[in-house]
Amino acid sequence: MSTLQISQVFPKVIAILQRYNKSGSNVHISMQTDLSSDLNLDSLTVMDLIMDLEQEFNISIPMNVMSEIKTAGDLTSTITKLASV
């Protein structure tokens, strides 16, 4: 597998987060955006949107790693790491 850059991953993370976001369609998503408190995503929904990202990048994010993901930035760096092995 080749190396991925955060700049390649982040836009796709934003696109999928926007699809699940329940706080209105115009929320600005930054690396600091908190999935739970800013986007109102419950933990089951986060697990489901992670599946979309796993498919997009052809990776599996283990559940123990998932539990440490709080922000869009955490999600982006985890994916970048896993997809670049």
Partner: peptide, 27 residues
């Protein structure tokens, strides 16, 4: 049970053998 154990835990899409296949392939 997965939480109590020590293995790496991966979820695949509900009732989706292709998604399981993709993940097993990567492992």
């Amino acid at each position: 049970g997965a939480k109590l154990g020590t293995a790496t835990v991966i979820r695949f899409r509900h009732n989706d053998p292709n998604d399981l296949d993709r993940r097993l392939n990567a492992l």
